[in-house]
Amino acid sequence: MLTVDFVNIGLNHYLILSAIVFVIGMLTVLLRRNLIVMLMGIELMLNAVNITFVAFSHYNQLVNGQVMVFFVMTIAAAEAGVGLAICVSIFKRFKEVNISLFENLRG
């Protein structure tokens, strides 16, 4: 059983926070139909991972994890740019950004 110490904030607190944020993000992606909200969910998942990186970096006294975070943030920015561009073009075509409009890949 995981014991939670509410006074001394330690590694476990960060990992639990990260897990919660990640699950929220994942559920957003899996359940919401709005493309923009789904993109926000992806951002949440990426940032949840960032939290674990920073937490472990601090815990292990290694700077590698923080370097990684910068990479993730850069890529997240690029990915958001592409994703939003797709959103714009879908919106131009359908006047809506519902993901169900985008099902031409079905077998």
Partner: peptide, 17 residues
């Protein structure tokens, strides 16, 4: 097995998860 590939992005994401 073709119904697995239904074009729904979220189903795919679910498979990944």
């Amino acid at each position: 097995v073709r119904t697995l590939q239904n074009g729904n992005l979220q189903t795919y994401a679910l498979y990944i998860a």
